[in-house]
């Protein structure tokens, strides 16, 4: 480790402000998204880390109280950098949106009572996703003075970078293409406009979609499929992040002889019972199998020709220290400028 060939190193993604992180369920995309936000904050940036799946993943990862529907500071970094967390809630986003653009003071409450908010956020196809991304879009162009203007100077913007902990690979393309989908349904009106604006941001040079995977068959297959789908709809794909990679010294153990192992164990004061020796050898064999499998999957990922970034398996489990450590590894491997 890192496994990646030089030609597959990430270049820091200059000019990118929106990092979308996806991956199959269970691959650790929330951890990677959090670590990427910390890595960016480590460069003195104001970073928004947004989640859209109502899981309170940010609060759990950083061990802070559950996030409200507004933006709150999660963790600070040297040189004025900080990570702001946001758990996007479609209902709150819709009401804010209506308030922002229509000044609907009491109408919001009436809409809520009539189930119109429920309708828009859960039933109407695509509207929920437009609201979720729309909220991130709004944050992306908000200035420090809380105003929104097209073409604001970077130093006036509220956030230097945004990391979006996005839905899993199975539905990422649909989620990100929701702007077009809604544009097909709503031919005029603000939802249409919102959809168009979101589309523009997502397909611009300022956005990259990173895919988190494990070196296992299914997540790798889903990664390949997702990258194909994303490219087909014109979404700019960034890096493939290999999570929970196991470093392995397979050559060293390939020739291991039971008698030699028993002798070595005894020489350092361990009891070389037949069960222990057999158990160790069995584990070495399984480990070797796993590594062979991982190498095969790695080759598949290398063929994608995308930057590869490797995050090692953390045996102790994920806490804030682990996130900070992973952030360092991401920075080292060119995930930040």
């Amino acid at each position: 480790m890192p496994f990646a060939a030089d030609s597959l190193l990430a270049d820091g993604f200059p000019g990118v402000r929106l990092h979308v992180v996806t991956g199959k369920g269970g691959t650790g995309k929330t951890t990677v998204a959090a670590a990427l936000a910390v890595a960016l904050a480590g460069q003195g940036k104001r970073v928004l880390l947004a989640e859209v799946e109502d899981r309170q993943g940010i609060s759990q990862t950083f061990d802070v109280p559950p996030l409200p529907t507004t933006e709150v500071r999660v963790v600070g970094a040297p040189h004025g950098g900080e990570v702001i967390g946001l758990a996007v809630d479609p209902k709150a986003a819709l009401l804010e949106y209506l308030q922002l653009f229509y000044k609907l003071g009491r109408a919001g409450g009436v809409l809520e009572r009539f189930g119109a908010i429920d309708f828009a956020t859960t039933i109407a196809p695509g509207v929920r996703d437009v609201l979720l991304i729309g909220r991130v879009y709004e944050a992306s162009r908000r200035r420090l003075d809380k105003k929104h203007h097209r073409g604001s100077a970077p130093e006036d913007l509220a956030y230097d970078a945004i990391v979006l902990d996005a839905p899993p690979t199975g539905r990422i393309s649909r989620f990100l293409s929701v702007g077009s989908e809604v544009a097909g349904l709503a031919r005029v009106g603000p939802i249409r406009h919102q959809g168009d604006s979101v589309n523009e941001l997502l397909r611009s040079g300022a956005t990259r979609v990173h895919v988190v995977t494990l070196l296992e068959e299914m997540p790798v297959q889903e990664t390949v499929d997702a990258i194909g789908d994303l490219s087909a709809i014109g979404m700019p794909v960034g890096a493939v992040i290999i999570n929970q990679a196991r470093g392995a010294d397979t050559e060293a153990v390939a020739q291991l002889d039971p008698d030699e192992l028993a002798r070595d164990l005894r020489s350092v004061g361990l009891d070389p019972s037949p069960a222990t020796v057999a158990g160790l050898l069995e584990q070495v064999r399984r480990h070797g199998e796993r590594v062979t499998l991982e190498q095969k999957q790695l080759a598949v990922l290398e063929d994608l020709g995308r930057p590869l970034v490797t995050v090692p398996f953390v045996v102790e489990g994920i806490d804030l220290d682990a996130v900070t450590e992973i952030a360092g590894l991401l920075a080292e491997q060119g995930m930040v400028p």
């Binding site: 010294d249 060293a252 153990v253 020739q255 291991l256 192992l261 584990q283 070495v284 480990h287 045996v315």
Partner: peptide
């Protein structure tokens, strides 16, 4: 004794993960 050492390192990870 790198081969035996490597086997014990593999085991250390396995044992720690199993305990967790």
């Amino acid at each position: 004794r790198t081969a035996s050492a490597a086997a014990l390192l593999v085991h250390a990870d396995v044992a720690e993960l199993a305990v967790r």
